[in-house]
């Protein structure tokens, strides 16, 4: 098979074509959405503006309705590479603050979720009474409580990383519980019977059968959990009065109409999410490979 054939019939080619189409559409919208302001400016100055000049201007506005992709990329480059990492203008600084809250919340949420799942597996009363509430609580817009948790914890003197991490914990703990309960229950009756014939204790069954067979479920849930943790951390930064973090960048950008800043924060968040999901995915593959379960 030639390279071009593989590109075309694999996923890479189509994805690239779709991305290219999105870029073309984006530039089209940049011209359409930003043109009224340029015309208005020209009208006020009493000059007429040529079409080519108009199009060039729409892509270089300082506060465009929709910034052009190259403006966003330039801003990203400027705020990550050209600024000192400790500077408040550096996106790396803000990204790190969000990332640390995300990771702390994700780790606590994962451990807590596994603990609850183990309890649900081993106690029928807990399974019957807690599980419906775990499912029901997923339908509740937890993110709506985020500002209150932050403000209230601030009032009692807890501020900084932990309140944001708690929101991430709350969000990431649900997918883990649901996935782990499913995973820990996934061994079939015949396998459990085999463990019984070995006269294995509850702990041994857990350690040697339930835990390993729950691994694929755990990692699938962790991918969802880490993405949602990031959302939690970003929303958690909104009510703190735009101090630091990607969420604060979004809020400050919307206050001052700095659209390029909003878009670059958005792209940074997207890159962070993609990176986190990818790392979990790599860990997933490595663990399954070591356990001899790789597909």
């Amino acid at each position: 098979m030639s390279v071009t054939h593989r590109l075309w019939y694999g996923n890479t080619g189509p994805v690239l074509v779709v991305i290219a189409a999105i870029m073309v559409l984006w530039y089209g919208f940049v011209v359409v959405l930003n043109a009224p302001w340029e015309r208005d400016q020209a009208g006020r100055a009493g000059t007429t503006i040529t079409t080519s000049q108009l199009i060039a201007n729409t892509m270089a506005q300082e506060r465009p309705v929709l910034p052009a992709p190259h403006q966003v990329i330039a801003e990203l480059w400027d705020t990550t590479v050209n600024k000192n990492i400790t500077s408040k203008r550096s996106l790396v600084y803000h990204g790190w603050i969000t990332l640390s809250a995300t990771l702390l919340g994700f780790v606590i949420g994962t451990l807590f979720g596994i603990l609850i799942a183990v309890g649900i597996i081993h106690s029928r009363a807990m399974s019957a009474s807690v599980m419906p509430w775990v499912v029901a609580s997923q339908t509740i817009p937890i993110l709506a409580i985020a500002p209150m948790i932050i403000v209230v914890l601030n009032a009692v003197g807890l501020s900084g990383l932990l309140p944001k991490a708690l929101i991430s914990t709350y969000l990431s703990f649900f997918p883990i519980v649901v996935g782990m309960v499913k995973g820990l229950r996934s061994p079939e009756a015949i396998q459990l019977d085999l463990m019984h014939t070995y006269s294995a204790s509850r702990w041994q069954i857990f350690r040697k059968l339930r835990w390993p067979s729950a691994m694929p479920y755990l990692f699938t849930s962790m991918k969802v959990a880490v993405a949602i943790s990031l959302v939690g951390a970003i929303v958690g930064e909104l009510p703190t009065g735009a101090v630091a973090g990607l969420g604060a960048r979004l809020l400050a950008g919307s206050y001052y109409g700095q659209t390029i800043q909003i878009w670059s924060a958005l792209f940074a968040a997207a890159a962070l999410a993609a990176g986190l999901v990818m790392i979990v995915g790599i860990a997933h593959r490595m663990v399954l490979k070591r356990m001899g379960m790789a597909a």
């Binding site: 993405a227 959302v231 919307s254 968040a269 993609a274």
Partner: peptide, 16 residues
């Protein structure tokens, strides 16, 4: 890919 992104961040742009 997009499903995993923090799409909520688009909110300030939509409000604008």
């Amino acid at each position: 890919f997009v499903s995993a992104l923090p799409i909520i961040g688009i909110a300030p742009i939509m409000v604008m």
